[in-house]
Amino acid sequence: MKARLLATLATACMTLSAFAQDFSKVEIKTHNVSGDVYMLEGYGGNIGVLSTSKGLLLVDDQFQGLAEKIEHAMQSINDQPLKYVVNTHYHGDHTGSNGYFSHKAPIFAHVNVRERLANKKEPNKNELPVVTYDNGVNIYLDSEHIQLRHFPTGHTDGDTVVYFKQANVIHTGDLFFNGRFPYIDLKGGGNVKGYLKSVNTIISDYPADAVIIPGHGNITNIEGYKTFAAMLEYSIEHVETALAQGKSEEDILAMGIGEKYKDYSWAFISEERWLKTLIAGLGK
């Protein structure tokens, strides 16, 4: 009951309008990841920043009420103009400040991100990406080569992974919740097995010594991502086996996820919500 209450409260907190939230006490913390790539930690998805003498590139921008704090944090790294913004997917904790930054730089995203933002109940044309792509695109800024690559049917249907080739840094967006159960947006084109497939493809296709900025959680590496992948594989097999045995949702919730991964439960995605996602995604 307590876990369910926490998840409900967290869901409400994450989906409220930015105008209804008080971000006055939120601190944007800056972490150097590798070379000229930084991570900004605040309230919402982790932000990536590329700092060069020819300008800055921003990956995701959290909530609207944090835009000026995010901008100040970027300027504290390097007081150069913002050149590009990338959205890894459409969720508000990654795109909420689009309206603010769109006046400063073009926003890049997968075509499905633009479509989903445009189809919101109260769409704001200033929030929309102005450069879209199907499979991916390359951006060159100073000496850095930034590769944007679309991964379909994972967290959503518009996921982009950002790879800073010179710095050897990957920003996975929400295809990685480090040390936590992930949110898979089944209503937004997400897919349980597609999520695992995307994770395994990233692990195999990118350098083994790459540093990773996850969508949520601490900076890590490919080995940390493999630990997350093992949790996904176990969870899918665990629930698939139970469903094949004819167990009901009630039975599976009573069975739980098992001791090994109980600590992956967090405020937004509790063990119960994770199991319900798996049941809904695998039971079709």
Rank of each mutant, 00 (worst) to 15 (best):
D174N: 08
E259V: 06
I146G: 10
K69L: 12
I236T: 05
A12W: 13
A67N: 14
A18N: 15
G224Q: 14
T160Q: 14
N168T: 13
A208S: 04
V192K: 13
D209G: 06
I203A: 03
T153V: 07
E240K: 13
A242E: 09
M231V: 01
R149W: 09
I202E: 00
G188R: 15
E223K: 15
L141C: 05
K197P: 06
I219F: 12
H216I: 15
V49S: 14
N87P: 07
F177K: 09
L5R: 02
T88M: 11
M231G: 03
H31A: 07
K276M: 03
V59L: 02
L40W: 04
F101C: 13
A230C: 00
A10I: 08
K193W: 00
A244G: 09
G44L: 01
H145E: 02
L5V: 12
G136M: 11
A118K: 14
H94G: 07
A20E: 04
E259L: 10
K25M: 13
K54N: 02
H94Q: 13
N98W: 05
K165C: 13
V131M: 10
Y234I: 04
L253P: 01
Q166E: 07
I146F: 15
A105Q: 06
I47C: 02
E27F: 02
N221I: 13
L56K: 09
A18M: 01
L50C: 14
G65I: 08
D93H: 09
V239H: 02
S76Y: 09
V33I: 07
I257F: 00
P106I: 00
K83S: 10
A3I: 05
H145V: 11
G281Q: 03
L128P: 08
H94L: 14
L40T: 08
M74T: 13
H216W: 08
H155Q: 12
E271I: 06
E122N: 03
V59M: 10
S235G: 02
P207K: 12
G224K: 13
I170N: 07
G96L: 11
N87I: 03
T220A: 09
H91K: 15
F19Y: 11
G35A: 11
A210E: 05
P207N: 00
L6E: 13
E272T: 06
A208I: 08
T52R: 02
T95C: 10
G35W: 11
Q147M: 13
E115P: 01
G215E: 14
H103P: 05
I47K: 03
H94E: 12
Y90G: 06
N112M: 15
L16S: 10
L82A: 10
A105P: 00
M255A: 15
G194W: 09
R273M: 11
E272A: 11
A105K: 06
K54A: 00
S248L: 05
S204I: 02
K54L: 03
D174L: 14
L16I: 05
I107W: 01
I212Q: 01
D251A: 06
K104A: 11
L148V: 14
I47P: 00
D134K: 14
E68C: 08
N191P: 01
K187A: 11
G154H: 02
S102H: 04
I107M: 03
Y84R: 11
